[in-house]
Write a protein that binds this DNA or RNA. Structure first.
Lengths: 127, 127
DNA sequence: TCTTTACTTCAAGTTAACTTGAAGTTGTAT
DNA sequence: ATACAACTTCAAGTTAACTTGAAGTAAAGA
């Protein structure tokens, strides 16, 4: 359906993250609203929110809805994702340095030139 | 030490990700090489590599070292991190849309103006 | 019509990555 | 010197997020 196995959808349903799903016969027929919510679940989950935190977030939207809490939580999560982006970019740099380092080792072995020293890669940036 | 509990360091050691750690008395005294390796472990782990994949990667560096496999693995991981970055940015947009949406709902409630419609936020970008 | 494939429920099992418990030792601050 | 926090080993326990098993139902294609 959303490249998620039905068992996972069932699991989310058991947790209360999805509900009021209409049936066609005895099978679930998800509406656009459910697909939207599923999209949100995936998004928040993939940005580090636990399913339990998602329960909390969604609970704020029910019965009236505590907008202040929703906005606060979303705002804080936004910042966390900002930090994740920063970290991920740093880690990407680290991996690229490693990659170039080992490529250069291979070249050095093939050309019988001196092996590179990792210290020379520590602060280098690659693109 | 690296803001990791000693139990986690022990766990990595049990998995063979860290070894030959010198002792001062009966306590571990990590060298710069170990700290470097720990940095790599954290980097790879935080970019989605499992500890078991790390075992594999490190096994290529031992006894001689299969440079082709290392380079291949690093190259592929680089691409995966690229995709992660793309996805994370998309998710960030989604979260920012949600945030603005709920902020606008709040404003609308306060000013007694009509509530916003999520459909108008679906393809909007925020910075 | 028959068969296959994907669904259905419910309970129980799995996996990765730690974490905790128990029992003992040691380097450092008072 | 004496306490005490932080280390030590080893085995066992925890947690989140699924996943699998068993047993049954049902829509869609040959």
């Amino acid at each position: 359906m959303y490249h998620l196995p039905t068992t996972t959808l069932r699991y989310y349903e058991d947790l209360g993250l999805l509900y009021d799903i209409p049936r066609k016969g005895n099978r679930r027929a998800y509406t656009q609203q459910h697909l939207d919510r599923l999209g949100s679940i995936c998004c928040f989950k993939n940005t580090g929110m636990t399913l339990s935190e998602l329960q909390t977030l969604f609970s704020y939207s029910e019965h009236g809805g505590d907008l202040d809490k929703i906005v606060d939580l979303l705002d804080q999560h936004c910042q966390e994702v900002d930090e994740q982006l920063t970290l991920l970019k740093q880690n990407q740099q680290h991996i690229k340095r490693k990659l170039h380092f080992y490529q250069d080792i291979r070249t050095a072995e093939q050309t019988n030139t001196p092996l590179p020293d990792w210290d020379n890669y520590r602060s280098r940036t690659f693109h």
